[in-house]
Nucleic acid binder design. Structure first.
Lengths: 238, 238
DNA sequence: CGCTGTGGTTAGAACCTCTAACCCAAGAAT
DNA sequence: ATTCTTGGGTTAGAGGTTCTAACCACAGCG
């Protein structure tokens, strides 16, 4: 009976993959405890029973390790959003939006430092590699399907107009929207999703930074109010 | 004719204050260039023509310097908000809200790294000293006066109810609200301000982190739409 | 069975923050 | 005016970081 690892690999490769996973696990633990700047390769190595420079056989630089953790984080967030969307697939759009927002926040507060790793201040000279944008889109994707059911009014019309320009300029974006909201106006879905994204990030990032300390933890209430207001403004049924 | 410095100080004190100001100026320059983690006391000292440990005669630790820069940043933001509020004092509330939002964003994008210093991921083991919360409140203060003119509906009612608890628990908060919105329902003003704060931070923090890259810089449009939506939801006249 | 390559080591360079000890001169006190 | 004190600035150094270079030893391959 072969184990979970890919069977068509040499023992060396399997060992390498396992050690890489252990390193990432230990690094995540450090980040969970003290945030991204507290991630020390030396300490990670020591925790695994080896010395500092050994890690450089597995990751080119410290930033490469961070990049992989960021990608994993995006994947985890996307998975959380996806399961929330599936679970509420039959609910009316308004409830689906709330379910997605709750899932987003739950994932973020579960490990705040990881959220800040993705959506917080970027590292010193760190430049997000291009593969992260696709993963970020996967996180927001489920929102497209929900908010495509609404429509824009008032000042949101101007936003929607700019979204049309963006859609025309970037085929990748258009395809992304189409794949998540096949039979909706892409610009409307996009305008609603960008708005929801900004609101989610606003509420959640303030929460994970502890800025709500002493207010009684009202983050859930604020988030709900924000999403209800968005649903109202876009006329989401439910 | 005496210079601008306080005349009742010894030459030593005046010199000390001047050097402290120069250090902070140079440190700000470094942060503007590379963000908070790029702030190196050694480099700052070298830039001023002295050696590293000399700075420890002026600031206890690196974090102390950061704290002072953060306080200065809050003061600058509060000043920007205040002048915007004064300039639009006679306009209807809706326009005042927009003016405040524009001022907030303008100050943030002017030096993004400073904004991230205040509202971004906190430093490694950095704990915000209590004096920063007062300064943060000064930034948001002008919003209270504007949003106190509205009222809450729908899901915002629940938020307002929690604000009442918070007001009852914390006299400092109540006094803060009263001082900026004397003849308004405090809970309403507070609920609106917290909502506006989260939306401002959501839009602006995504912008200063460069997450909007390639969308055509629509941050201004999104911000306007968010504030108009808030004004609509709270029934702000204008 | 031997060769190669990979994982691991130590050594070290170049940074960083921060402390300790010392020096010297400007200002204060007498 | 001279002495004393104090505070700015220095060098030295401890302990930390990332990351490179050189080397060793063994696992797994042909």
């Amino acid at each position: 009976m072969p184990d979970g690892s890919s069977s068509t690999s040499t023992p060396r490769q399997r060992y390498r993959e396992q050690v890489r996973a252990e390193i990432k696990e230990a690094a995540l633990e450090q980040i969970r405890a003290g945030g991204a700047p507290a991630l020390s390769l030396n300490a990670v190595a020591k925790g695994l029973g080896l010395t500092g420079p050994a890690l450089y056989k597995y990751f080119g630089k410290r930033d490469d390790l961070l990049t992989e953790l960021i990608c994993d984080g995006y994947d985890a967030a996307a998975a959380a959003m996806r399961t929330a969307a599936d679970r509420a697939a039959d609910a009316p759009p308004r409830e689906r939006l709330l379910a997605l927002a709750v899932a987003f926040r739950a994932w973020a507060v579960e490990s705040p430092h990881v959220y800040q790793l993705l959506a917080g201040t970027p590292s010193p000279g760190y430049h997000a590699p291009p593969e992260t944008v696709d993963r970020a889109r996967a996180v927001l994707g489920p929102l497209l399907g929900v908010l495509g059911r609404g429509d824009c009014r008032g000042a949101a019309l101007e936003l929607r107009a700019e979204m049309r320009f963006w859609l025309n300029d970037s085929p990748a974006v258009e395809e992304w929207v189409k794949s998540w909201a096949p039979d909706a106006d892409p610009a409307t879905a996009l305008a609603g999703t960008v708005t929801a994204w900004a609101r989610l990030h606003g509420v959640v990032s303030l929460e994970v930074q502890g800025l709500y300390a002493g207010m009684g933890h009202r983050a859930g209430t604020l988030l709900k109010a924000e999403m209800e207001a968005l649903a109202d403004a876009m006329g989401l049924p439910g």
